[in-house]
Each structure stands twice: as structure tokens, then as C-alpha cells.
Design a binder for these strands. Structure first.
Lengths: 165, 165
DNA sequence: TATTGTTATACTCTATAACTATA
DNA sequence: TATAGTTATAGAGTATAACAATA
């Protein structure tokens, strides 16, 4: 018997009943990824006026909050591979948002600083991102926000075993 | 005076003090992304023996749980763009895990099914992923898991506005 | 006219190997 | 010998435009 869809169409085929994704929805990884993508989709238009992509904003923020930080440390903090940071920093430097200075004490390294313009752009972008994150994107209470962030942090910080990279 | 790091090195330069990432860590998007990447890093080696990537596992799972589903519906469920699903399905088909059949009622579409082998591989992979997710990767209690997933789901499902794609 | 599946293509993101200069 | 920064490059992943067949 082909017995397919006399009156009970293979739910998959109907436009009405959404497909069963219950297993995937039981996974933290799946939900975390979907949530991250949803939030990033909201943050993107916020950063667009500043001509910043998400990673660029992250790097700019870390440099602004840690004057004199090295490339290597930015990579470690944000889990970026060194070769991929090079072009990113070059763009920020060309736009006059970041500058490199000689590192005191290690001539291999270089200290990173935001310029006055870079600091201004970062501040504006940070305020805009914070607003979107807390208000529009997620209608969670402050307590729920705190709970969520604490749980997420336990996942990617909690265990001793290193990441794959 | 070069006055650098006699005893108080510019925290950025020292290998000891970790850089300040407090702002980024206050963002749900940042934490969700880091958590998702950390979990995926754990899941990858679990799927490797089955020669499945994460997206392939997701697609295989949705097809297994929704026999007769169409490409378009898989795309909608997993937020995959149709052109990107084509090659993915082709690989799964060539490996004998998935098969396409004529769709009853719409000759444009095609119904997707897992083969016996596909069902077996999917089951094994699902068990392995579930084990990693609940045990090793995240040491959360069942209650914490449930809370986390509920909060995450509210972020990417809760609001009416569609995603960017 | 709209939709399904598809091709071709481009752009971003991420990853690896290897080089240089310093330590 | 190891590390910081860099180059070149490869591979995922994700995006858009356009087409044929069907609704």
C-alpha cells in the first residue's frame, strides 16, 4: 500500500503542519546557534551605519577597552586565528580607527590602540548594540537575561578541555 | 623612562591578566555564539565517524523524522537557502542515505525519504550527539538545560519580525 | 503570475602551511 | 627552540540572479 495522503497527507507535504524538529530543538547547540543568528541579524543593521561587521566591532571594542593589547591577545580573547586578524586590522587601520605602535619590551609584537575617531565610533556602536540587545531583540527581563548569560558562559568557559582550534 | 613593566605591565602585554571583554560578555548574542561554537566543536568529532557535517546531520534528521518532506520545507525548517541544499542532498543521495521520490499531487516537488541505511546512520548519530550534548559538553542539570533552551527559543522564535534572510 | 528545484557564481568566514624577525 | 606577525591559499558557509518545469 502506498497509502499516502487520502485525507491524511504526509504532514511534510502540507503547507500547514510545520515539520517535526523536536530532536534538534532539544539540543543546546542547535538553539544557541539559532538564537545567535537571530540576534546577529538584528545587530547587523545597527552596525551598518558605522560600516562595521560583527567581528570588526568585537575587535575594535577589545582594543578600545584594552589599550596596548597585542594581536595575539586579541586572537586569544575572541578566538580568531592570527592570519584572519591581519586583514581585519588593516582595514580598521586604513579607516583611521586603530593604530599600531611599537611594543615596549618585545620588538616582535606591536601594541594596538584606538584613535580618537576609533574611540568615538566604538562608543556609538557599543551604545547602539547594547540598546538593540536589551530592548528590541530579546524581550527578556533583566533576571532572565542574567540567567541566560550565566548558563551560556558555563557552557563555553565551564569545562577544562580546550576548544578544537 | 620607558616605564613599562617594572612591576605593573600594561595588562594587555602581560601573559597573566586576561584582557577585558566585559562588554561583549554582557551581550546575549556574543555568549550564544561562543556557546554554540563550543558545543559544535564537541559535536564535530562525534559526527566525524559517520562522515557527517553538522548541517548534513540536521538535514538527515529532519528527513528521517518527516518522511516525504520536500526540499523547500527542509529549507524553511532549518533556515537553509534552496541553492545550498542542492549539493548537500546530492551527497546524501550518493551515499545512499536519502532518496527522492515523485511527490504525489505536485509534480514540481519531490518527496524526500531516508533509506534503511540512512535511518540507521541517523539513529546512531542522533544517539551520539544527544550523549555529548547532555553529558560531556555541558555540565548542566536537567532543570538548567530546560531553562536555557526555553530562553534561547524565546529569542529566535519569540518575536514576530522575520529573520534577515 | 507564483512556486519547486536547479545552475552558476560570488562573497564571507574559517583553517593550514610556511615564512621573517625577534625572543 | 619558541613566539609575534605576516603571506598565500584552501575550504566551508552563505548569498543573489536567473532558468526550466509545473502550479
Amino acid at each position: 500500500m502506498r497509502g499516502v495522503n487520502a485525507r491524511c497527507p504526509p504532514r511534510a507535504a502540507s503547507g500547514a503542519a510545520p515539520p517535526d524538529t523536536s530532536f534538534l530543538e532539544s539540543l543546546i547547540g542547535y538553539n544557541a546557534r539559532r538564537a545567535a543568528l537571530a540576534i546577529i541579524a538584528r545587530v547587523l543593521p545597527t552596525l551598518q551605519p558605522h560600516d562595521l561587521r560583527v567581528v570588526e566591532f568585537s575587535v575594535l571594542t577589545v582594543i578600545a577597552h584594552n589599550p596596548g593589547i597585542t594581536s595575539r591577545q586579541v586572537c586569544a580573547a575572541l578566538d580568531i586565528l592570527p592570519p584572519n586578524l591581519v586583514g581585519l586590522l588593516r582595514r580598521l587601520e586604513r579607516r583611521g580607527l586603530v593604530e599600531k605602535r611599537a611594543h615596549p619590551g618585545d620588538r616582535r609584537a606591536q601594541s594596538l590602540y584606538v584613535t580618537a575617531l576609533g574611540a568615538q565610533v566604538q562608543r556609538q556602536a557599543q551604545d547602539a548594540v547594547a540598546a538593540v540587545e536589551t530592548d528590541e531583540a530579546t524581550h527578556l527581563s533583566a533576571a532572565e537575561r542574567a540567567t541566560l548569560i550565566a548558563l551560556l558562559r558555563r557552557i563555553y568557559q565551564g569545562n577544562g578541555a580546550g576548544t578544537t582550534r
